[in-house]
């Protein structure tokens, strides 16, 4: 459960969010909107990467402003550019990196990393240099690095923007199969068919909030 109450935010003089009230309990939620509409900022508030200037955010009953680390342990975040998220030289090491605070032995961490990689289609790539993977594989790796921690919520900020059509579809399909609550920020409207709820943002405000079909119809009209 994620709650926004009267949330507002600005960078310098520019207002990016104003007066956002949302309670998100659905399993598949998408944020759509033009560039600069505030959807990315909203997504970052869910794991405390951005703290709201006004209003209040509650994530799984926790306050990201005060319990940032506790929130981040339970909320995974996948960024647009996997190059920025992959921090270790090989795929296996990168996934194992997520577990470094788990108290598990090095061997156990490596084993779990391999298990997760295999589960999401990167079996046999544990020793592979991470930066030599294809774009689609890198994004899968970034996802694995989050899922190995078994988070309750997964926030994805335009994860498919850099992928080709086939990989876009595969990635979103994969998100659909997860047990976690998924919050997806995206411009790929065609991929949202299976979603429970679509929130449309425009200039920092929620302008539509509905099932995919009516919400996306509204957004398309808005975009002209």
């Amino acid at each position: 459960m994620i709650e926004f109450e009267g949330v507002g935010h600005h960078y310098g003089d520019r207002t990016v969010l104003s007066d956002v009230d949302l309670t998100l309990a659905e399993r598949r939620v998408a944020f759509v909107g033009a560039n600069g509409s505030g959807k990315s900022t909203l997504a970052r508030m869910v794991n405390g990467l951005v703290l709201p200037a006004e209003g209040r955010v509650r994530v799984l009953g926790l306050d990201p402003a005060k319990q940032g680390n506790a929130v981040r342990r339970r909320v995974g975040f996948v960024f647009t550019n996997p190059d920025s998220q992959i921090v270790m030289p090989t795929a296996g090491e990168d996934v194992a990196f997520s577990l470094r605070r788990s108290g598990l032995s090095t061997r156990e961490r490596a084993r779990r990393a391999e298990e997760v990689l295999a589960e999401y289609g990167l079996g046999g790539y544990a020793e592979h240099p991470a930066h030599q993977l294809s774009g689609g594989q890198k994004q899968l790796l970034a996802l694995c690095a989050m899922l190995v921690l078994k988070p309750d919520v997964l926030v994805c900020d335009e994860p498919t923007t850099l992928l080709d059509l086939r990989n876009k579809r595969r990635f979103v399909e994969l998100l659909g199969r997860l047990d976690q609550q998924v919050l997806l920020v995206t411009h790929d409207l065609d991929l949202l068919g299976g979603f429970d709820r679509v929130v449309v943002l425009d200039e920092g405000r929620v302008v539509a909030d509905d099932e995919p079909e009516p919400a996306l119809a509204y957004y398309r009209k808005l975009a002209g």
């Binding site: 970052r44 995974g76 960024f79 920025s84 998220q85 921090v87 605070r101």
Partner: peptide, 14 residues
Amino acid sequence: RHADELGEALAARG
């Protein structure tokens, strides 16, 4: 820019 993204990613990864 990459540094800023990496900083965010590290924070997101605890």
